[in-house]
């Protein structure tokens, strides 16, 4: 449907600057060619500078999923994998398929706290801990630096932190990678940079991970590569978009609460909402609004809604209001 409002994939609703789009178009004009390795190196350098780490620690990829998959493939053979539930769905699916032992820690509403003691007791044998921070779909910061340090002090443990939304939360462990060889941080340009269509992910890999990635080489499509280079060269535009998103997050959250819905605090570009209407996601879809229904993967009655533009959010809010009105009337 052409007029669908997509609030189901946590995309940035704003287009990147004209220069970034023009760079992608420049890439398209060389569609018959692979990317130039020199340009790939340039992007690595730009991402290293943006993240405040050494270029040697940056691994490029087409999105962050292949990086997480590779980590699971390589490092789960002699280790148990520890994750939280719920978590980034593709990573969970991959882990379910390949690992020899998977431990999932159920996050419990309304706080969704991750108990450090569980991680400590579970990491008494070689382990790979994968945590999305902030967590998707709760939007909560699950681990702080102190907890990360405690996990990393156990040299039998590898810690992988998925920081897809770190630009919104302001929390990152990238600067800890140099000191802690058993830490890696996975990031993406899909979200805050508004480049979901370019699919650029990167790993800030600790020393223990680097060997495994020595043969992992991503030939990025030229349009993706050039748009990413342009975006990371001058990332000032993302600040404005993040500010707008956070402002909308607070406004939409407040309005939903006024409607009597349970809205959980978020440090991301999406909101976790609990409603007592089991069919709410389907009813929103009938109105042309796509949101993520979490009932099939996790607890019933929860939906995840990405923040869109002001106009999109207003349509979403008025649709929710209408659904609630009909539902309450029906009761």
């Amino acid at each position: 449907m052409l007029n669908e409002i997509k609030l189901n994939m946590n995309e940035m609703p704003y287009l990147p600057p004209r220069e970034v789009i023009e760079a992608a178009q420049k890439g398209l004009s060389n569609l018959n060619r692979y990317a130039n390795p020199r340009d790939l190196e340039l992007l690595r350098g730009l991402l290293a500078a943006y993240s405040g780490v050494s270029k040697k620690n940056i691994i490029l990829s087409t999105g962050s999923d292949p990086l997480l998959r590779e980590i699971i493939h390589v490092f789960s053979r002699r280790r148990k994998v520890i994750m939280v539930n719920p978590s980034f769905f593709p990573t969970v699916q991959c882990a379910k398929e390949f690992v020899t032992k998977l431990i999932k820690i159920q996050l419990r509403p309304p706080e969704f706290n991750l108990d450090a003691d569980i991680i400590t007791s579970e990491t008494n044998e070689p382990s790979l801990v994968i945590i999305d921070n902030p967590n998707n779909p709760t939007g909560k910061i699950l681990i702080d630096r102190e907890m990360a340090k405690t996990i990393l002090d156990n040299k039998n443990t590898l810690l992988v932190v998925d920081e897809a939304y770190h630009e919104f939360s302001g929390v990152t462990f990238a600067d800890m990678v140099e000191e802690h060889s058993n830490l890696s941080v996975v990031r993406t340009l899909d979200k805050a940079f508004g480049l979901a269509g370019a699919r650029i992910g990167y790993l800030i890999a600790g020393e223990d991970f680097l060997d495994a990635f020595s043969t992992f080489y991503a030939f990025l499509p030229q349009s993706s590569l050039y748009s990413a280079m342009e975006a990371v060269k001058d990332p000032s535009y993302i600040k404005k978009n993040i500010k707008l998103t956070i402002k909308e997050r607070e406004r939409v959250g407040k309005k939903l609460k006024e409607m009597g819905l349970q809205v959980y605090p978020s440090t991301t570009n999406f909101l976790l909402i609990k409603s007592n209407i089991p069919s709410v996601a389907r009813e929103l879809k009938d109105k042309g609004i796509l949101v993520l229904d979490l009932s099939n993967q996790w607890l019933p009655d929860y939906i995840r809604v990405s923040l869109g533009t002001l106009k999109e959010n207003n349509i979403f809010l008025s649709s929710m209001k209408e659904i609630l009105r009909i539902c309450n009337k029906g009761e």
Binding site: N85, K96, V99, T100, K101, L102, I103, K104, I105, Q106, R108, I118, E122
Partner: peptide, 11 residues
């Protein structure tokens, strides 16, 4: 125990 190689930590 939720599967052959999968466990969930629950409160």
């Amino acid at each position: 125990i939720v599967g052959k190689k999968e466990e969930m930590v629950m409160e």
